[in-house]
Design a binder for these strands. Sequence first.
DNA 1: CTCGATTCTCTAGTTACATCA
DNA 2: CCTGATGTAACTAGAGAATCG
Length: 372
Amino acid sequence: MELGLSLGEAPTPFSFLDHKTQKNNMVNNKKDQLGFCMALGNAFRSDQEKRDQVEDHDHDYDHHDDDGDEHEIIRRSRRVSAADPGVPIQLDLLPSVPVPRSHMITSSQFRFPWLSDNLVLSEPGSLDGLGKGFDVNRLPAAGAAAATEETEEGVTISSPNSTLTSFHVDFCVRNSSTGSGRDNINNHNNNKRDHINIELDTERASSRASDDEENGSTRKKLRLSKEQSAFLEESFKEHSTLNPKQKLALAKQLNLRPRQVEVWFQNRRARTKLKQTEVDCEYLKRCCETLTEENRRLQKELQELRALKTSQPFYMQLPATTLTMCPSCERVATANPAISAATATNSTATLPLAKPIIHPFSHAQAGKASAS
DNA sequence: CTCGATTCTCTAGTTACATCA
DNA sequence: CCTGATGTAACTAGAGAATCG
């Protein structure tokens, strides 16, 4: 009988994984037939699944919890323990873009544009303006001239006059130029600092975006505001891909060009995948270490058994048929119970040999033998 | 039904820029 | 102020799928 480890065959999923995770991993493994079961979610599913998701969105935009985003990966990876090297490793992932608590939006606090035209926010102050619709990239005064703008995809963005006023009235203390606003901010008390910084942030984004529109083709890099990033992040948690309808709705809501939303999602997927690759790499590294250690242990055991064989030549010269595995129950039936005991305990004690040979596949006898 | 052109969206890789230590 | 590292928005190329005539 031989014992071996093999990669390449269809794996039997680890029992510690729940059914859903197993299913996901089987999907992952099917592709390259690695036959390796990992306690990690599938951040990127097959094209067919993605298409299915897009089609689902055309019907309804309900949240599907089995979306394999990295947060799901975190939850699933936490179900396993790293304490035992033989047990798969716990891998803790932090969200890739840590959002300050004060800027966090939970999905229960608002709804996405494709769910409803209005966002519902429960935390005033931290995200002022969100609930009334984003306008952070619009020019405060001059931008109003462009009350209706045509995006690159021919989408008309509605007039900003509904939100612009309230959003900027609160922060009229700052300078109109981008850089010099900091001096004013320093004079304010700490309670307002965060609030103002957010505004400064959005204002920078606003001025750059407007510059970009003025310059046209020049590649001016826009830094998305915290609110925009947080909103996109929450949106990404819901769905890692967008259909055109969602993209337009999101762009309209955030006052970004649809192309910007599209690019953000592309880059976000790339970041997630990169992170997932790092996690996979780390996991495989640890698996390799575990297997190396196991291999070392088995080699040592083999050496000890060989040593036993040389020190007990007569004892080991028993007929081969006396140590046999039952093919049905996979129990080792031995003619000499002491041999199995010695093998199991790796003992080198001298053993009595004058015992009758038991039929290897007689379960009743084998059971009796093992019991003795 | 098949075929080629077109369009759209994706990934992977890269570049350019903003920010920070 | 300068500089290198880092993060990320934006770009490019190429592939695959869907659509249309």
